[in-house]
Design a binder for these strands. Structure first.
Lengths: 228, 228
DNA sequence: ATATAAAACGAACGTTCGTGCTATATACCT
DNA sequence: AGGTATATAGCACGAACGTTCGTTTTATAT
């Protein structure tokens, strides 16, 4: 009785205690899983390989998930957190409007360039692997990508509302184009490892932003010299 | 004797004879392999599965290639032939210049839309699967993609030479952008199966062509109503 | 210090993978 | 007709796959 009450009060605190050990291991597993999966794919991510890399037993690792599919879903979820931390959050520290929109694209490219995931964009790889493989994994990936496209679209519309972009620009269309250019850069970079791919994508996006910007918006856009 | 002479005259005709039987089987295998691989990946393309689909024995099938890697390379090569037949050749029947350039992009999108490969663009899938997996398969894929980018780039430069596109347009940059938009459409379509993805890519490409075209080039560009 | 529940383990399951070896059937050449 | 290269099949292999099981270790709450 007293036990239950005490435990309850601790429940949402930083993970300490016997129950927390599992969570910590699980987290470590997923951290490794994300990087293997981004390079070798979510199917190439094998439980034996994962166990070996973490020097633990297959069965001990497996117990954390109950099935490979659940491991895959958990891995996707972990990748999403990383993506949010590395791309979304930094961009949302920028001022709403055309600056945030540019930062969003720029940071995306930066996160590929920095090699946050061993195999480039986790979701580009995962989407192309699972797009013709029905199931919960595919569904979750599709959801997350919709989320991302919506974020991009909203940033565009916010930039319009702020008077930085002309109002007759089709936000969905522009979001599609930006996303394509980013995926294109990722794709080319993974194949040829030339950083020019990123320059090209930045160039294309910047050019489009400058073309669609109002006078006010253009003043806020970084000049080419300012770009890193 | 008479028989032999007869055979020689037939040599380049549709394959007949005991040696030809192997070739025919091999061709049939690869035709099936390409479609499985485009959907399930070149690694997911398993010899057992392939044999089952063709109702022949694993070993009998295997004998045609000697190793899985060789089967994969041959599959990539087959996909290349199909791509050439379905995309490159039709475009090269169009007049050199901005029309051929547009046709090249339009046909590319059409070949995805038509579902020539079960899993969308074979090379988009293969590239993203093998980009972090060194070996001959990866190398061949990278070569073929360079080939495609070069074709796109040359079409752009030819359009410039023909006076259809402004000469200050950076052909490599534009080729990158067009390729990205196509890959983006393929990616989005595989996930959500909405044909709007193609409309968006066409819109973006067409818009760019119109912006970069000379007066002469603009006259040759299909109007939106003309587009299929 | 001891009871207890969570966490990790080792061994084995039945499949499927790619790859050999050996034998048989088929089609051509002399 | 007989010999020969080719094409396919049958069978077995070792390894790796995801998964299950019963047991042992570990950590904490009392």
């Amino acid at each position: 009785m007293a036990k239950a009450r005490l435990q309850k009060s601790v429940e949402d605190r930083p993970p300490v205690g016997r129950k927390a050990q599992g969570e910590r291991t699980r987290h470590a597993i997923l951290e490794t899983a994300v990087h293997i999966a981004s390079a070798e794919g979510l199917e190439g991510l094998t439980i034996g390989r994962l166990a070996l890399e973490l020097s633990m037993s297959k069965s001990g690792l497996f117990a954390h998930f109950g099935s490979k599919e659940e491991l895959q879903v958990a891995t996707v979820e972990t990748a999403r957190s990383i993506f949010i931390k590395e791309v979304i959050k930094p961009a949302f520290e920028a001022q709403e409007g055309v600056v945030r929109l540019w930062t969003l694209c720029d940071t995306w490219l930066g996160y590929i360039q920095a090699g946050i995931f061993r195999g480039g964009c986790f979701f580009a790889a995962a989407a192309s692997e699972f797009d013709s493989r029905p199931g919960v994994v595919r569904d979750r990936i599709a959801e997350i990508m919709k989320e991302w496209l919506a974020t991009l679209r909203k940033a565009i519309m916010d930039a319009q509302k702020a008077g930085h972009l002309k109002s007759d620009v089709d936000a969905t269309q522009l979001a599609f184009e930006f996303n394509s250019l980013e995926l294109g850069a990722n794709w080319e970079y993974q194949l040829y490892r030339e950083s020019r791919s990123f320059t090209r994508a930045r160039e294309a996006i910047h050019h489009r932003l400058a073309a669609y910007a109002t006078a006010a918006g253009r003043r806020l856009l970084p000049t080419k010299e300012t770009e890193k």
